[in-house]
Amino acid sequence: MMLLDALARCDGVAHVETLRELGVPPWVAGAAVRTGLVRRPRRGWVATASADLALFAAASAGGRVGCATAARRHGLWVLDEPGLHLSIPHHSGHARPPADAIVHWRGREWRQGHALVDPVATVLRDLADCLSVEAALCVVDSALNSGAITLGELERLLSDTRRGARLLPLVDPLAESGFETLVRYRLLVAGILARSQVHVDGIGRLDLLVGDRLVIECDGRAHHDDPLARARDRERDLLLTARGYLVIRLDIRQILRDWPLTLAVIRDLVARGQHLWRAAGLRSGG
Rank of each mutant, 00 (worst) to 15 (best):
A95R: 05
S132M: 04
W110A: 04
R125K: 15
E109M: 07
G152V: 12
S87A: 07
E109T: 14
L168Y: 02
L144C: 11
L137D: 06
I102S: 07
V120T: 05
L170F: 03
V120D: 02
V171L: 00
S159V: 14
A95H: 07
N145S: 09
S92T: 02
R96F: 01
C138L: 08
F179L: 15
V123E: 09
R163Q: 05
V120A: 05
E153D: 13
V140T: 01
A148M: 10
A135P: 10
A135Q: 12
L158T: 02
T161D: 07
T150A: 09
P98T: 02
P119F: 10
H104Q: 09
T150M: 07
T122H: 09
E155T: 04
A143V: 11
L151Q: 10
H91A: 14
A136P: 11
L158S: 01
I88C: 04
S146K: 14
G152E: 14
Q112R: 14
R108Y: 04
G93I: 04
L144E: 08
D141H: 00
R162V: 14
V133T: 11
R156A: 11
S146W: 05
C130Q: 15
R125Q: 15
L168I: 09
L137A: 01
D100H: 04
G113I: 01
I149T: 14
L127K: 14
L157T: 11
D172H: 00
R125V: 15
R166P: 00
P169A: 06
L116R: 08
V117F: 03
L137F: 00
R125M: 15
L158M: 02
V139E: 13
A101Y: 04
P89R: 04
A128W: 03
P97W: 03
P173A: 00
A121G: 05
F179Q: 14
R111H: 03
G147Y: 04
I88V: 15
S146A: 15
V171F: 00
S142I: 12
L144N: 12
H114V: 09
L170M: 07
T161K: 02
P119N: 09
V133E: 01
S159L: 13
S146P: 14
R125L: 15
L131V: 05
G147A: 03
R125Y: 07
H94G: 04
I88P: 09
T150Q: 05
E155V: 03
H91E: 11
R106T: 10
D100Y: 00
S132Y: 03
H91V: 13
V103C: 08
L116N: 04
D160F: 10
R111T: 08
G107N: 15
I88Y: 06
V123K: 07
G113Q: 06
A143S: 10
S87I: 03
